[in-house]
Amino acid sequence: MGRLGKAGWVTLIVMLALLILPPVLLWSGNEFYLLLATRLVILAIAAVSLNLILGYGGMVSFGHAAFIGIGAYAMGIPVYHEFYGGLPGVASTNGFFQLALAVGLSALFALITGAISLRTKGVYFLMITMAFGQMVFFLFQSLSEYGGDDGLVIEQRSELPLVSFDNPLSLYLTSYAVLVAVMLLVWLIVNSRFGMVLRGAKGNDQRLITLGYNTYLYRLTAYVIAGVIAGVAGFLMANFASFISPDMMGWSRSGELMFMVILGGAASVIGPVLGAAAFVVIQEVLSSWTVYWHLPFGIMLILIVLYGRGGVMGIISGRGSAHRRPDE
């Protein structure tokens, strides 16, 4: 396998396939599969960001979809005001402005909720992040100005120089580029000194504290970075769907992101991408065979957990026991 290693080869093949396949699908008249691939890539961005805290930092967040929602509404609300008036300071169809808003708001939300949530550990952390996610969900559900539960139709996609999001291929390639950049960023982070501390604290928090590291701050930083990336995914998702609704950020959506990460194999950069791909493709394939596709899908999940430890990446790299419980 050369110096690249198995994981490296998988990454290369998958990312090349994601680069080549969708344009080919478009030219062969299968535009729907380009749209499917776009959804896949955007979900993969969010899953990769979740994996930064879940897989490397041991912070199992059950409220990650809230960031997608915040990013999406940060894109949609300015467009709404541009078309229907009100809040002139926010009204805009400028992509950079919307993106900045998405980044800023998700960072702020991550900072506040992270500061509180990170006082807890394990399942308590999982539940408190879920609680914050649900609060955002009910907040947007009660905002009847923006459609409440019915959601908001986005009249115009973000305006950016050079790319037009109205062209499905541009939107796809932009999302793909963002995914590559995010994967690279996460890879750089986890292999830096910062990442070493983060990973070390997952295994043995006390040891690193004794060594003089403030692991709380490391975790909080990672949590904010992950939140911001998911906010960007939300910005892209709003552009993709031209529609936003609180349904994007319910707890079941956070659950799906979590399953993508675990399914693909936590603690590898490509794992969540595989998980998102498996999730979207299996769902599409099974549901085109039967409306009761949840049944075979559920059985598959159970079998993967029972026999294929470490998710899809675990199966590929032949690791036997990626999910052994760390001794406390």
Binding site: I262, L263, F297, L301, R324, R325
Partner: peptide, 18 residues
């Protein structure tokens, strides 16, 4: 039982679907 909580979550989510 001997596995990580994450495996419990994924496995029992599969069970919910079933």
């Amino acid at each position: 039982y001997a596995r990580d909580h994450l495996d419990h979550v994924l496995g029992t989510f599969g069970l919910i679907l079933v």
